[in-house]
Amino acid sequence: MKNVLVLQRRKSKLHRELGTIFAIFAREVTLLFKSPAFIGMSIAMPMVMMGMVGGNLMENMTGGLNFEFGKFMLVGMLVNMLFVTTTQSMTTLVDDNDSNFNEEMLVSPISRYSLAIGKILGGSFGAIFSMLGTLIAGLVLKVTLPLSRWFLILSLSPLMCLSAGAVAMLVIGMIKNKKAANYAVMLITMPQMFLCGAIIPIKSTTGLLKILSRCLPMTYCLDLVRAVVYHDSAEHDSVVMFNPLVNCVAIVVVTLVCLIIGTYFYAESEKNK
């Protein structure tokens, strides 16, 4: 037998962490493309939602609004679908746990945060398809945005995915059961959609609902995206709630808090049996 070959380890820590994040991202993307049904659903879902909910609302309920509801909803749906897809994909944490693949990742010498971030970014890759679905639905309903705005939104999407994933991680990271995880997804996505103003405006909301909406990063993501979309329009003040900078800070803070707590729970719940 010839001598055993040796591979050299990389020296730089940062390089290694980034490599890890990319590897985990690439794995998720590979898995995504192996499940065309998921891709199909990601495209169909926003179309169904916009078509049914949005279509009805547009025709029946928006008389008193002083902004164009179609555009408002398109942006809301875009961000909402991004959150839904990312949350949905975080349920693979449970699959990894079932197949014991978690252990392979947890025993490796990488930061738990790299694991979480790679997982979230990879999982949210599917959100691109839901954006596509939203775009199509928008075209059908004759609601469109200039191309430059689409690119701006696209460039904000990794930040939004991270915050969506961090919230999901907080809830799903601790769940060991596929059924419970599926309910958890509903539990996160449904209230988020209504609390954060994806479809229904929340600018005048008060009380408990207001407090809840301020705790969820999606509120700020939505507002940030709307600030981008509406920044030179007359409707700006009736749609946008906060300064974009406030939104950015809020997103980063809430995301970090969720990510730190979520990752901690995810790693610890595995360990403390």
Binding site: L7, R16, R27, N100, E104, M105
Partner: peptide
């Protein structure tokens, strides 16, 4: 503790990346 959705080699590749 393999990822059953990947190929054999992809499993190894992933591991090599995790270990830098």
């Amino acid at each position: 503790s393999l990822d059953v959705h990947l190929t054999a080699e992809q499993n190894i590749r992933f591991h090599a990346a995790l270990y830098g």
